[in-house]
């Protein structure tokens, strides 16, 4: 092989390496980005989303938290979680004695060859025990998820990316997050990184870091508890893009990437937002 070919090959492999950074390097770079952007805010505070960077909105939110609207969903979710299936089994047969397992989700399931979110795991559990799957975005599934999130409060997000297939799923989610789409030509990071903290109409844009710590969420404009993929759909619609199906591979990979970015952060869901 000629020297020129060897050099070309070396340069090409260096370029590939620079493009495909590993997830942990990405996560640290993201934390550094927010630390530089908001030097006076402890990064752990980002679990509170936009309320970490807007003191006035934080006051309103704290008052909302006195009588949180998501409490009913937690109660309903607890009842649903503890109601045995027709075959006598229950969710505990799938998730163990402690329903507080949200810190492990989404996870990459090697056997199934894809990302499994908590909502997918709940419906898988139902199907394995002869029950019908629940609708993805709102209603009973969001309530069960809210209860499990509540039971997971205080635990640190612990997402693992430990196989080439898992890395591919992470990469796909990362690409989605930074890719412009829709007629308005916006990428997720455009609002949540480049323009984080700025006002978009009446809303202040929230940081990427901590985006997944508090779901599912009771949103004032929804008037019910819904999960994060409902918000993904809304974001896509807001930039005039056709949204993807809830729990589609695209959104599961996006949730996987986004949750990994908050790895190590404390869960405090369910949450309430305007």
């Amino acid at each position: 092989m000629k020297w020129t070919n060897l050099i070309t090959l070396l340069l090409a492999s260096m370029m590939v390496a620079s493009v495909q950074a590993d997830p942990e390097t990405d996560r640290q770079a993201l934390r550094d980005f927010y630390q530089q952007k908001f030097p006076d805010i402890d990064l752990a505070e980002f679990k509170n989303g936009v309320y970490a960077i807007d003191s006035k909105m934080r006051e309103q939110w704290l008052e909302m938290e006195d009588f949180p609207a998501y409490e009913i969903a937690i109660d309903e979710g607890e009842e649903l979680y503890n109601t045995p299936f027709a075959n006598g089994k229950s969710y505990a047969d799938c998730f163990g004695d402690d329903p507080g397992v949200k810190h492990n989700y989404p996870m990459f399931d090697q056997a199934r060859g894809g990302v499994v979110t908590l909502e997918v795991a709940i419906n898988q559990c139902r199907k394995e025990h002869g029950e019908a799957a629940l609708p993805w975005l709102v209603g009973e599934l969001a309530e069960i998820s809210a209860y499990m999130a509540y039971q997971s409060r205080g635990k640190s997000i612990d997402i693992k990316i430990d196989s080439p297939e898992a890395i591919a799923a992470y990469d796909d989610g990362e690409q989605f997050y930074y890719t412009r789409r829709g007629q308005l030509n916006f990428e997720c990071s455009g609002c949540h990184q480049q323009n984080v903290g700025k006002m978009l109409r009446a809303e202040r844009t929230s940081p990427t870091l901590g985006h997944t710590t508090h779901w599912p969420v009771y949103r004032g404009r929804w008037q019910y508890v819904g999960n994060i993929q409902k918000r993904f759909q809304e974001c896509n619609i807001q930039v005039r893009a056709v949204p993807f199906e809830a729990q589609s591979e695209t959104y599961r990979n996006l949730e996987y990437f986004l949750t990994y970015m908050s790895n190590g952060m404390e869960l405090n869901g369910p949450g309430s937002r305007r």
């Binding site: 770079a29 990362e174 690409q175 930074y178 890719t179 789409r181 007629q183």
Partner: peptide, 23 residues
């Protein structure tokens, strides 16, 4: 016409997204 614009967006974003990832 709009679909062609969307396809242009898809094509150009294949490489541009990487520049937005914090380093």
């Amino acid at each position: 016409k709009l679909s062609r614009l969307a396809l242009n967006q898809a094509e150009s974003e294949k490489s541009r997204w990487q520049a937005r990832v914090p380093q």
